[in-house]
Amino acid sequence: MTAVFADDGTVTLRPPGEPSLVKAAEALRLHQAGQLTALRAAADRWTLGVSALIGLTALILPAVGRDVIRTLQPWAQIVTGGLLAVAAAAATFATLWAYRAAYGLPVIRAVDDDASLLNWYAVYQARPVEAASQLRRAIQAALVTVVLLAASVGVAVFGPARPITSAPIQITLSDDSVVCGLFLTSRADARLRVRRADDGAVAVIVVAEVARIKPVKAC
């Protein structure tokens, strides 16, 4: 209804110019009455979806194990570790926001006068908007988590690996002499090529003359 106030104090009530406004206002009132409950029920269901997305971590992380990361070049190790760290943070925020949207926070409010009642009502009216924003951020953070995990796997699997080098070895010959150094590719059968650690020279050793070979930490 529209109230029209005349100069003499007379008040005239007029019906709305658009009859459908009455139905629209009633529909809005009914919708807002159960809005928070419906939104939290939806957020509760979305929480399961967010948890399922983050659960991909259990499937992806084994492909990015410690041994795989150790084979990468240093910059690729840093990138993989950074992606995993940010993914873990995004997963944490996604879970927190999803649960806050679904269940809110336990808060005790004292409502013992008109001012505190109006304050509670203002907070109550703002809850649906806040819950919707939290749910939206949870979904976005979950998607970011999946993208970062996929990127970390990509870097770990397709990133540049460290050059493969042999560990130092110590060869004892049949005459009790010792050669210590790194294995090199041999160009002949029954021959070992070792770059000596003492002078850097390449020693060619006949396999039949080898009495013992053992790896060492350093020559």
Rank of each mutant, 00 (worst) to 15 (best):
D67P: 13
D67A: 15
D67E: 13
D67G: 12
D67I: 14
D67V: 15
D67R: 11
D67N: 11
D67S: 14
D67F: 15
V68D: 13
V68C: 11
V68Y: 02
I69A: 10
I69T: 15
I69H: 01
I69Q: 10
I69K: 12
R70E: 14
R70F: 09
R70G: 10
R70W: 07
R70V: 13
R70N: 13
R70A: 15
T71H: 12
T71E: 14
T71W: 04
L72E: 00
L72Y: 00
L72D: 00
L72V: 07
L72I: 08
Q73E: 12
Q73H: 04
P74F: 15
P74Y: 09
W75S: 13
W75P: 00
W75L: 14
W75V: 14
W75M: 14
W75H: 08
W75R: 06
W75C: 10
A76F: 01
A76E: 05
Q77P: 01
Q77C: 00
I78S: 15
I78D: 13
I78G: 00
I78K: 09
I78L: 15
I78T: 13
V79E: 15
V79Q: 14
V79G: 00
V79C: 07
V79R: 14
T80V: 12
T80C: 11
T80Y: 01
T80Q: 09
T80F: 03
T80K: 06
T80A: 14
T80H: 05
G81N: 13
G81F: 03
G81W: 08
G81D: 12
G82C: 01
G82Y: 00
G82I: 02
L83N: 05
L83K: 06
L83D: 03
L83R: 05
L83M: 09
L83W: 01
L83Y: 01
L84M: 05
L84R: 07
L84F: 00
L84E: 05
L84T: 08
L84Q: 08
L84H: 03
A85C: 01
A85S: 08
A85T: 07
A85F: 00
A85M: 04
A85N: 11
A85W: 03
V86A: 07
V86C: 02
V86E: 12
V86M: 06
A87I: 03
A87K: 01
A87M: 01
A87Q: 03
A87P: 07
A88T: 11
A88K: 03
A88N: 10
A88W: 01
A88L: 11
A88M: 12
A88F: 01
A89R: 08
A89E: 11
A89N: 07
A89H: 09
A89D: 11
A89Y: 02
A90T: 12
A90H: 10
A90I: 03
A90S: 07
A91L: 06
A91Y: 04
A91T: 11
A91H: 05
A91D: 02
T92G: 08
T92C: 11
T92N: 08
T92W: 06
T92K: 13
F93Q: 08
F93L: 10
F93C: 02
F93P: 01
A94V: 03
A94H: 09
A94M: 09
A94Y: 06
A94D: 02
T95P: 10
T95N: 05
T95H: 08
L96A: 15
L96S: 13
L96T: 10
L96V: 12
W97I: 01
W97H: 11
W97M: 08
A98M: 05
A98W: 04
A98E: 05
A98L: 02
A98T: 07
